[in-house]
Design a binder for these strands. Structure first.
Lengths: 224, 224
DNA sequence: ACCTGAACACCGTTCAAGT
DNA sequence: ACCTGAACACCGTTCAAGT
């Protein structure tokens, strides 16, 4: 049972979605079950079906919430590559709030209102930059996928563990890599720490986003 | 029940893993359950536990299989960017054989023998190209993630559906996009076909890989 | 060495019934 | 309008028992 903040919440569609997100954050997406959510609200599992059609619809709604939190200056007049960078930054920022749920968001771009708005904006800025329709579709998809992959690959932060357990987990992985023979795997051993850990998350994300935008810029240069 | 090719296979660790991959290809990863695999072999679910420790170990073994199929010229003397391209190409090729299982492979790089070999190779070529250890770790991770995202985002090819159902599915999605108001969503409507479908898969993958490598190249140029 | 039967603690979901 | 009870068809896994 997740820490109940304040009084026992009353059941409602919004409350269910919010609790589901909190549960995913705390214990992983697998912990989000209809029966468990019933427990959280002190109610029969079947009670949830009044507020939510079924589990799939609940997961979709969770994905929509993530897009709804995207904050982007749609009126920006910056150059196209700066605008593309801003799109990925905004996606990453929204997804980091619920890292275990990125895959849910991924499939809801065209299904959610905010996702549609974001997609339209991104496709537009790419088309006006001079990309073909085909390139535009691919790059826009890659932008979303890049955000998904950066967040879901974020080293550490596995749910369902406290900090001690996470450190223990990391130490085990590190030991596993360092146990490899030094003559055959010098590079893995050299990079072990950097592969498993990252002490500046801001740098991690900026580096990933920079590389993506640089790739897009190079593609445009090659085409023109 | 998946089409039983030839006689009823005898139970063995290898047979279980292979059947699990075939099942995932045909009906998705969710269809892979211990009980279902028991059915496939005409055997009690518990019989599988003799050949496989538990479900997690089975999933890990499936991931290892994917890496084991990676074909790469480890002795290549090409320039670093061409070698990096070859790494992603090889990963994509191996993963396309079992597209629903890419996430299983993803977490097995450092756990499987072939994954370790591939990681060492990739880290080495990046280090010798002049990247820092931090950059090397990030770019190598991105290489794997790029392959994962290209394959898992491959338009169409959702399992558990025959071709008619997939076309129907596509038509529904297309109709959904074309139903958006033309004045607010001109770019989504323009790109609808390209967003949902791709008639040249080779181009799709080459474009994605090119963009990734171009990003890495630009990063090195900026650093130097 | 390899497989089975029974059992346990879980899932999502339906449907009639209660208030 | 909103919730419950009972039931169904699923999961993964353990453990003693069979051959």
């Amino acid at each position: 049972m997740i820490a109940t903040k304040g009084a026992a919440e009353t059941l409602s569609r919004d409350a269910v979605i919010e609790r589901a997100l909190a549960l995913a954050d705390a214990e992983g997406l697998d912990a989000v079950t209809i029966r468990r959510l019933g427990q959280e609200f002190g109610v029969t599992p079947m009670a949830l079906y009044w507020h939510v059609k079924n589990k799939e619809e609940l997961l979709d709604a969770m994905g929509d919430r993530i897009f709804a939190a995207v904050e982007l200056d749609y009126a920006s007049t910056a150059l196209w590559d700066e605008q593309l960078r801003a799109v990925v930054r905004a996606l990453v920022q929204a997804m980091r709030a619920h890292p275990t749920c990125v895959e849910l968001a991924y499939r809801r771009i065209f299904g959610s209102a905010e996702g549609q708005r974001l997609a339209e904006h991104t496709l537009g800025l790419l088309r006006r930059a001079g990309f073909t329709v085909r390139q535009t579709a691919d790059i826009a998809s890659h932008a979303l996928q890049t955000a998904v992959m950066l967040v879901s690959a974020e080293p550490g932060a596995e749910p369902g563990f406290n900090e001690d357990e996470r450190n223990e987990n990391l130490a085990v992985k590190r030991a596993g890599l360092m146990a490899l023979p030094a003559d055959v795997f010098p590079y893995i051993r050299e990079a072990a720490d950097e592969l498993l850990h990252c002490d500046d998350m801001a740098d991690y994300y900026e580096f990933g986003i920079d590389m993506f935008v640089a790739g897009a810029r190079a593609t445009l240069a090659d085409t023109a």
